[in-house]
């Protein structure tokens, strides 16, 4: 891939990000931060490449270290997001609060 194609993907993804994030309800901004945290650990791809490559032991160990860090984030980030989202519940009986008016 040449630089311009990559740049196009990047710019378009920024635009998509802009519209998608504005549509996130403010009540879910904390889960948003947790899940963006988890997905930014896709950097694990680079870590895996470094860890799997033969030849330079220093690079391999740096890669393995990065795999550990990114994995903490992937598992921790998705799990904590899941835990938070499970807590958001609607009213059991709609209108129960107004019933006694």
């Amino acid at each position: 891939m040449d630089f311009i194609s990559i740049l196009s993907i990047f710019v378009l993804a920024c635009c998509v990000g802009y519209y998608v994030v504005w549509s996130v309800t403010p009540a879910l901004h904390t889960p948003l931060m947790a899940v963006t945290n988890a997905i930014s650990s896709v950097i694990v791809v680079g870590a895996l490449i470094a860890a799997a490559a033969a030849g330079v032991p220093g690079a391999k160990w740096l890669g393995l270290g990065a795999v550990v860090l990114a994995s903490v984030n992937i598992f921790g980030g998705f799990a904590v997001t899941e835990r938070m989202l499970a807590m958001y519940k609607k009213k059991d009986k709609p209108g129960a609060g107004k019933a006694g008016k």
Binding site: I6, I9, F10, V11, A13, C14, V16, G17, Y18, V20, V21, L32, M33, T36, N37, I39, S40, V42, I43, V45, G46
Partner: peptide, 12 residues
């Protein structure tokens, strides 16, 4: 995948 994610998280 990394570029799209980076852009999403960055704009978020």
């Amino acid at each position: 995948a990394m570029i799209i994610t980076g852009a999403l998280v960055g704009s978020s």
